[in-house]
Amino acid sequence: MLTNNIIFYSDESSIKISVNKDLFNKMYQYCDKSYPNETGGILIGTYLDKQTAEIVAVIGPSEDSKTWKTRFNRGAKGINKLLKEYWEQGIYYLGEWHFHPNGSPYPSNIDTDTLTSISNNSKYSCPEPILIIISGSHNCYNQKSYLYSSTGQKFEMNC
């Protein structure tokens, strides 16, 4: 792991999440571009070992995504092709990221339902998806990370 990474952990889960600070800067750029509307995308990465998920790439919203001030629907145009290219490199879909402008970095019921559904959907091959929520506005962002299990548990991760 690089020293430029932020490590998220929970005392309730054995899994840690490692994210390079440059990837947060990339997400912040998407947030700046979308502001005052929500935005989001996909987290790509791998497991360094059975307990550490490393996010190595961030995909922004596809062109068919829908965005409003208090809602975001991630589109799918071009996503399967990108995921296949990453898969061939040995890196995979690990979850979603999402922006709550001027809001809190806590998941809504829709966010939680979506991630729980992903954890139970074999097409994603992701039984423990990660959700990163960014809140705030230009140059003043907060973020929180969450891990969802197929049993419906949600773990709030700390850094």
Rank of each mutant, 00 (worst) to 15 (best):
N37T: 09
G78D: 01
K144V: 01
K144M: 14
K84S: 09
K154W: 07
K33L: 14
S18I: 03
R71E: 15
I55G: 11
Q29E: 14
H100L: 03
K77N: 07
E96A: 10
S108K: 13
S150F: 07
L147R: 09
S104A: 12
I132H: 04
W68M: 01
D113T: 15
S104M: 09
H98R: 14
F8T: 02
T70N: 04
F99S: 03
N25S: 14
G45I: 10
L147H: 00
R74A: 11
N102I: 02
Y141I: 02
I134M: 14
S65D: 07
S65Y: 06
T151M: 08
I133C: 07
S14H: 13
H138L: 11
T112W: 04
L2Y: 01
E156K: 12
S13L: 08
S150M: 02
S13K: 02
S122P: 09
N109W: 10
T116R: 06
Y28M: 11
L147T: 01
I44M: 03
K21Y: 04
E88L: 06
I44K: 04
F72I: 14
Y35L: 06
A53Y: 11
W87L: 02
I132L: 14
D49P: 00
K26M: 06
E88R: 08
L83S: 03
V56N: 07
C31Y: 12
S13W: 03
A53K: 11
N25P: 04
A53F: 13
L23F: 06
W87F: 11
Y106C: 05
K16G: 05
W68A: 05
N102V: 02
W97I: 08
Y9S: 14
K84D: 09
D49S: 09
Y86G: 12
S18G: 13
Y92I: 10
E54A: 04
D22G: 07
K154P: 05
S145D: 00
N120C: 14
Y35T: 06
N120P: 05
T67E: 12
I132D: 05
T39C: 15
D32Q: 10
F8S: 13
P107M: 06
W68Q: 01
I17S: 05
M1V: 08
N142F: 06
P105Y: 11
I130F: 13
W97V: 12
G90T: 02
S10T: 02
S10I: 01
S10G: 03
S18L: 04
Y93H: 15
D32T: 06
P129I: 05
E96I: 10
N158V: 03
K66H: 10
S13F: 01
D111Q: 07
P129A: 04
I91W: 00
V58P: 13
N102L: 08
N80L: 14
N25L: 03
F155T: 06
Y30P: 08
D49N: 15
V58H: 12
S117W: 09
